[in-house]
């Protein structure tokens, strides 16, 4: 946590004045209207990244279990961010907190803020459905909805009010193509999605998520249940999608993070130990814990 200080500043029009930004250490993060941004106060590389997702002082409790402790992070846009860390360290919880999939009925308590395009996800006044629509979500194992392949992709657009058959046909075709699945399923669009192979199912889930036109793709170890070939296809897909989407994936496979991540967040025992550009975190980690994790001393 101390390794870097994130300072949220009013920016947008003042990109070049960053050097004047609060250098006095941990100035309390400020929110302003306009786009949120984060500044890495590294001496040598100062960069400014616009961010759809900014987390501020987030704490999550499952009953008495303090799962996430004082999380502050911004997820850089149009990059692949890998959230890494050992099992049970809270990385999935962090990911799910982004679109409030945690607010189930089992005594989960959340304090702090998750700002998605400056809207607080945990503000009771926030209409969560339109925030969730901004984020496609891929779970560990694919979970196709109990309907046909076509209806899986059309589900989101239909929920949001699209009824025209022709438009739906176009959307289904377009996003199945984006997920590199179209050629394999175009002749059986109306068969149950559960008959697809597991790798195809995961790509279908991706197409389903893309069909609501999100800005962000969240993946919770999206390749962990897949065979190596299917995993590789998903990784390739992420790489091709990152020009248009902000992607955040949880992974416990370090090699995967090294292969595809542009930005890395290392979580350990519910805390963010270190985060930064992938190259920096992997090659010259600032924290001892990170180094130990990356070199395999702890896992």
């Amino acid at each position: 946590m101390k390794s870097e200080t994130i300072v949220n500043k009013k920016i947008a029009e003042e990109k070049k004045t960053i050097t004047d930004a609060n250098h006095n250490g941990n100035g309390t993060p400020k929110t302003e209207d306009g786009s949120a941004a984060l500044v890495h106060e590294n001496k040598d590389n100062q960069e400014l990244i616009h961010s759809h997702i900014t987390v501020k002082n987030l704490n999550v409790f499952f009953g008495n279990n303090h799962v996430l402790k004082d999380i502050n992070i911004s997820i850089p846009d149009k990059k692949i961010t890998a959230i890494i860390g050992p099992s049970g360290c809270g990385k999935t919880t962090l990911l799910k907190s982004f679109n409030r999939l945690l607010d189930s009925t089992n005594g989960t308590k959340v304090t702090g803020q998750v700002l998605v395009d400056n809207e607080d996800v945990y503000d009771p006044k926030t209409e969560i459905t339109h925030i969730r629509k901004k984020m496609g979500f891929l779970s560990q194992r694919p979970f196709p909805l109990p309907m046909s392949i076509y209806d899986n992709v059309a589900y989101g657009p239909k929920i949001h009010g699209l009824r025209k058959r022709k438009k739906l046909d176009e959307i289904v075709e377009h996003y199945l193509k984006s997920a590199c699945l179209w050629d394999e399923v175009k002749d059986r669009l109306h068969t149950p999605a559960t008959r697809l192979s597991i790798g195809q199912q995961q790509r279908l889930c991706l197409a389903r998520g893309l069909a609501v036109e999100p800005l962000i793709i969240l993946g919770d170890e999206p390749t962990s249940a897949l065979d190596p070939v299917s995993s590789q296809r998903i990784e390739e897909l992420f790489n091709s999608l990152k020009d248009s989407y902000t992607i955040a994936i949880v992974t416990h496979i370090l090699r995967q993070a090294k292969r595809i991540a542009d930005y890395v967040v290392f979580v350990y025992m519910g805390e963010i130990i270190e985060h930064g550009p992938a190259k920096q975190v992997f090659e010259s980690p600032k924290e001892k814990l990170t180094e130990e994790y990356i070199s395999g001393i702890i896992s």
């Binding site: 339109h130 969730r132 560990q140 194992r141 109990p146 589900y155 989101g156 929920i159 389903r208 609501v212």
Partner: peptide, 15 residues
């Protein structure tokens, strides 16, 4: 019914 199936639907913006 696995929670993930609900999550899948909710994450698409369904109520």
């Amino acid at each position: 019914i696995p929670q993930e199936l609900r999550d899948a639907s909710l994450s698409l913006g369904a109520t």
